[in-house]
């Protein structure tokens, strides 16, 4: 009999082969795909996010868990019905114009993807108008903006202004992150949220969509 808790533990350990093996076994034993997803995998990624936030798990381990999650989701996707889609919401994400630093942004993307979000990753050095266009094209619910440099922080404000001017600001929530920014800055520029790390970003995005 498939034990979903074992899947959760293997996911936290970042053991991709074990996770995919256990997920396949659970599927073979006719455990519902959405049950495996919600009670085994997403539960595991929530714990990974919490532990990262607490400083008990670090980037390499989070990446291993995220990779195991992606492989497991690939097994489940064809088995999930239309109403059981893994997609929690759509996120357009990128680093602010002028900022080439993407490690944090990539980690947030992975955590969000593992939490069931569809990610439209615009990469680095993203102009405000590119964010606007992507929101329109993909009907995204969330925009994720990242900056590592104090010199690129003002572009976050410019991007929010561009979303306002193009009339799509009301349809999206803007979340910001990166070393030089904080909640105070998020409030100042009119962002909807700030997350200090990838685990918190995933939690915050889920709160927004719930």
């Amino acid at each position: 009999m498939a034990d979903l808790n074992t899947i959760t533990q293997a996911l936290i350990a970042g053991d991709k082969d074990q996770v995919t093996g256990l997920v396949q076994k659970a599927v073979d034993e006719n455990v519902a795909a959405n049950k495996i997803l919600n009670e085994g995998l997403i539960k595991g990624m929530d714990i990974v996010g919490d532990r990262m936030q607490e400083g008990d798990m670090f980037i390499p381990e989070v990446l291993m868990s995220a990779r195991a999650m992606s492989a497991a989701v690939a097994i489940l996707k064809p088995l999930l019905g239309e109403d059981e889609s893994v997609v929690t919401g759509k996120v357009v994400i990128g680093t602010a114009k002028g900022d080439m630093h993407d490690i944090g942004k990539n980690l947030v993307s992975m955590m969000l993807e593992s939490a069931g979000f569809e990610i439209i990753d615009l990469g680095v050095d993203v102009a405000p108008e590119q964010f606007v266009q992507a929101v329109k094209d993909h009907q995204a619910q969330i925009v994720g903006l990242s900056a590592l440099l104090t010199t690129t922080m003002p572009m976050m404000q410019t991007t929010i202004d561009a979303l306002k001017q193009s009339g799509v600001r009301e349809q999206v929530k803007v979340l910001i992150g990166g070393a030089p920014v904080n909640q105070e800055f998020a409030d100042k520029i009119g962002a909807d949220g700030y997350a200090p790390d990838a685990g918190s970003a995933s939690k915050l995005a889920k709160q927004i969509m719930s």
């Binding site: 400083g55 008990d56 798990m57 670090f58 980037i59 390499p60 381990e61």
Partner: peptide, 19 residues
């Protein structure tokens, strides 16, 4: 103040250094 877990699984005398 904090040992960053860039490798994340290294130990010394049985203790994990990261964190």
């Amino acid at each position: 103040e904090f040992v960053l877990g860039m490798h994340s699984q290294l130990t010394y005398k049985g203790e994990r250094l990261a964190g």
